[in-house]
Amino acid sequence: MVTALKRYVLERELLYLFLNSKVAIIAAIIATLTIGSALLAPWIASTDPYDLKSFDLLDSLYAPAWTDEGDERFLLGTDDQGRDLLSAILYGTRLSLLVGVLSITFAGLLGVTTGLLAGYYGGWLDTIIMRIADVQLSLPAILTALLIDGIARGILPRESHDNLMIVVLTVAIGLSLWVNFARTARASTLVERNREYVQAAVIMGMHPIRIMFTQILPNIMGPIMVILTVDLAVAILLEATLSFLGVGVPPNQPSLGTLIRTGTEYLFSGEWWIVLFPSLMLIILIIAVNVLGDFLRDALNPRLR
């Protein structure tokens, strides 16, 4: 049994490298804990920050429970509206993760598709796609996101705005991150395109789109997975930044960014906990995801082995 398990691990290079990297294991544990607790927020959190009845304005601005001004009901204290900060952070992380994952999926789909097309066909299609990507790259991600956000605010009616905010955020962040995917996918496709297995499919008469998605795509997933993890951290950070600037999720739905924003307003009046704990959560989450991304990049890169 043990030997069978050992053999299984040995044969799977990635798993083997993972189990031999302390940093990767620690990062994975932290990421699992934070992401897990955020996903399970409705069951873990003591109060629901979306439910106005569950909190009381009289409880506002309690310090963390272990300090002199603390209240044992609120482990990490409360914010200006009397919400339990721990619950708000858990729900906030959930929202941040949701936006992050959605936007990275959007960016991935867009980037990989355009990258495959550009790399496979080459010629003018390649030129057009990569020029657009270059232009996109020259704009700071926040600027793109602000622009799209602004346009959406202008077009959409005010009532539907709050509901559609998540979609707008997803598109905004996704559009500013697709270039990485497109470039990576294109570069890998250029290499795979000339491989003989692709030529075999061409000779057979397989449709180019099918060749791209069934033959080439599985072979370029390695580098794309790396971009996926590294950029997930970037997407979460972008969401927090946008929410911090007030153009992200509506203020009544706490995300890590909105929590930090409210926190800064109270920073100088001594209520440090409102800004500190959401920031810590954001930092831990970003570092854990980034370390995992770095591990993947090194593990999948044969030159670094």
Binding site: R195, E196, Y197, A200, I203, P218
Partner: peptide, 14 residues
């Protein structure tokens, strides 16, 4: 049908 030179690249590894 064609048989290629390099059997390491003529079969899709995935």
């Amino acid at each position: 049908q064609m048989i290629f030179q390099d059997p390491f690249s003529s079969l899709n590894n995935r």
